[in-house]
């Protein structure tokens, strides 16, 4: 499952032209299925770190934010910088707090 998404995405990446809508939608749907499958295996005990960890992943918007910051005058300056800051809070905060939590989960010694 995961492999098929990656293969398809790789093929789409290889194409020189802009990502086509249909390919984008197919990749999105397949990735959703991969997500559903993988997440179903996460034990209840880790659900909070899962949320904060997936939050950090949604900070991937940072890519868009970095490209947008400063484009087209004040609008890109203000909103782009805001986007970079907000996404970075997610990325840095998300990974750190998840690590802090996961460090606490210990087995019986």
């Amino acid at each position: 499952m995961a492999l098929s998404v990656i293969a398809l995405a790789a093929q789409a990446q290889g194409a020189p032209e802009q990502l086509s809508i249909s390919v984008a939608v197919i990749i999105f749907v397949l990735a959703m299925f991969v997500g559903l499958e993988v997440i179903a295996k996460v034990p209840v005990t880790l659900h909070t770190p899962l949320m904060s960890g997936s939050n950090a992943i949604s900070g991937i918007t940072i890519i868009g934010a970095l490209l947008a910051a400063g484009i087209g005058g004040w609008l890109g300056g203000v909103f782009g910088t805001l986007a970079v800051a907000a996404a970075m809070i997610n990325v840095v905060g998300g990974y750190l707090v998840t690590d802090r939590m996961l460090r606490m989960f210990k087995r019986k010694d």
Partner: peptide, 30 residues
Amino acid sequence: GLAAAATGFVLGNIGLIIAGALVGASGIVL
């Protein structure tokens, strides 16, 4: 997550689409 994926569609960026879909799915499961 879905917001990130939607932004991925705007930018035509596969990284955002896949990552956003994963987070979207995770939230749905929970």
